[in-house]
Design a protein around this nucleic acid. Structure first.
Lengths: 362, 362
DNA sequence: GGTTAGCACTCGAACACTTTGAGTGCTAAA
DNA sequence: TTTAGCACTCAAAGTGTTCGAGTGCTAACC
């Protein structure tokens, strides 16, 4: 098969089949296509063309005597032909981006509301991905002193969010001593990813905390927990119910299978981490590395901050028969919007970037 | 109908019907019940009894010639007879409570993992509810200074969690000035619920922030946002896929309806806020105030801290045909576990309680 | 040579019809 | 009061038929 051996008419027919199938969900017959004004030949000719398209692998026939449906390869051809042209402004989006601009949330929340937006605009299931960072760390510790037995440790992470843990201690702890705790934490753990926190460092911390040995263990456990949390990456869905409106999921078992796959976040996270870092990624049906996703498509795009670091991704999941034109343009607009926000248009900042010079444990 | 006019045999048969139906999901016939060793009469007798139970409203017949299924009233009778006896220790729970004890999370996370636990133990969908607090407020503000143009406001809320917002400011802000910001915030907003923050207070704040007027607006917006968040209550589900295994939801439309209702969190929150504050609440089918829930049951229990304040609730949602014995005992154990944790058994504290005396804006 | 009309063929969907079996209600006997 | 027996009901599953959309192929057409 040479690169682009499809005649214009074949392309036209393929496109028409795909768009009709996306709309109706039914196999598309030759007669139906004659109603398409762009195609000006008889059903017999269309049959011939479709038969060839099938031989080439772009179409499939569910049963000997039924219309054709696009194969994954057909969708792929369609999507590739779409790419480049989808970035037109999305009118629906305008009003809603306003809504996001007013929020001064952390990146997690931004991604989540973006995914909700994507879901409601496209009518598929939205996904918000916070990738597993290569080596996240806690860049700074602070505490809030409550009383002699209670305080809160506030941790600023390298991936731009703030975590806190409330700690109760048996010993009596006065304000002055409590305020030395973050110094110890910062001295020992700040800036170190989990795999660089070695036993000597832990011992050093315990040494510095000697007066409050009992606390040291608790604090280390908290640090460890937060490290785990931020290194885990995360995946959130919105509008799972949208999927139910598509007949391809009216078969419970299939839907259940997909839901199960979605719950197994690790697999999806891996898949998305492998995706295209620059452009929109589209996995159509069997192209997906996950077998259970073979009847679904997933479209997503990485979100980067102004330094080009990937801070997350958003996308949608839907049936293979997905309105790719709409989805691609929506995801593209939303991600563009977020990126420009991260560039400093609003108050949202990736706080981590600021720490390079700002670090200071005084 | 006088209080308790069911004969022992009727009770036995009703119980047997319910338990068989819970297990199989199918209508229960008279012949099937003769296999039950506790019932020692013929199928004909059982038929007579069932016929009377139906007349009394405890059973229903889907079709003239099919077995009986319990009515909502039947389930209600069963559940009421169960209450009191369900609190036995749940062996499965032992190991898992260990897991929760090691976490020093805030109340939100505790509830969420409790709901996951409930879901996995019962095989229904778990719910974690954080109620709409009557008048939540921010009890304390702190900041983390990053650099001349960036800092993070950390807010301790009255309902026991910590919120943060990163703020970027145009003006140059040195550390000393920055450290006066929480003083202003504390002086104006700490301890006040949203409806008690009046215009004069806002003006006072702007006055105190005069040098950094631009910041004041941003900060107020952040405060407002956090107020909204903590006053909103929240509802989280886990294990929605569990529901799919029950044939009553194999009908897509019904499942979709339920999912839709679950997304509409306000309704559910209201319902749960109206629930029994002391004991386990059980809404069986049509007992639920929500019409869409008429084919499902919901079981939940409030979680209180040591002062008796309701801090949340956990529960499960499932088909009317729910294994109430198991669910009631599971929810009861888990909630007991959490409550005892909150009582101080571990490091989890409701930080708010500590603030009564600890408050101090130095 | 590409296009079209015509025709036989295929096969799922829909419908009507029958069979099967679990379950009931009723009655009469124990 | 309980039980055995019997006629009856009805959903589910199976069978057969029709219907129609759609195909492939062939022969005629431009």
């Amino acid at each position: 098969m040479r690169g682009n051996e499809l005649s214009e008419r074949k392309k036209l027919i393929l496109k028409a089949v795909i768009e009709a199938h996306i709309e109706t969900g039914e196999p598309v017959g030759s007669k139906y296509l004659t109603e398409n004004k762009q195609i000006s030949c008889s059903s017999a000719t269309i049959r011939n063309e479709m038969s060839e398209l099938e031989a080439l692998g772009y179409l499939e026939q569910p049963h000997t005597s039924s219309g054709r449906i696009p194969s994954d390869m057909g969708y792929r051809f369609y999507v590739d032909s779409l790419k480049g042209g989808y970035a037109k402004a999305n009118a629906e989006l305008e009003g809603m981006s306003e809504l996001m601009k007013n929020k001064m949330h952390e990146i997690d929340k931004v991604l989540e509301s973006a995914s909700k937006l994507a879901s409601s605009l496209t009518n598929y299931t939205g996904i918000a991905i916070k990738p597993r960072p290569s080596a996240a760390f806690i860049s700074r510790f602070e505490i809030m002193y409550l009383d002699e037995h209670n305080f809160i440790v506030v941790m600023l992470t390298s991936i731009g969010n703030v975590k806190s843990r409330s700690i109760a201690c048996e010993e009596t702890l006065d304000r002055e001593n409590a305020e030395r705790i973050p110094d110890c934490l910062n001295a020992c753990f700040a800036g170190l990813s989990a795999d660089r926190i070695t036993l000597p460092i832990v011992m050093k911390f315990e040494g510095m905390m000697s007066e409050y040995a009992g606390l040291a263990g608790t604090l280390i456990k908290s640090v460890y927990e937060v490290m785990n949390e931020i290194n885990g990456g995360s995946l959130r869905y919105s509008g799972i119910d949208h999927l139910l409106q598509y007949p391809e999921f009216s078969d419970m078992s299939r839907f259940k299978e997909l839901l199960g796959a979605l719950e197994n976040q690790d697999d999806i996270l891996n898949m998305i981490s492998d995706g295209d870092k620059e452009d929109i990624s589209v996995y159509i049906g069997s192209e997906s590395p996950l077998k259970v996703m073979n009847n679904s498509s997933i479209v997503f795009k990485a979100i980067k901050d102004k330094e080009g670091k990937t801070v997350g991704a958003i996308g949608v999941i839907g049936p293979t028969r997905m309105d790719y034109a709409k989805v691609l343009s929506t995801i593209s607009s939303i991600s563009g919007n977020i990126s420009s926000m991260l560039d400093g248009g609003t108050h949202i900042k990736n706080v981590n970037n600021l720490l390079g010079e700002g670090e200071d444990n005084g």
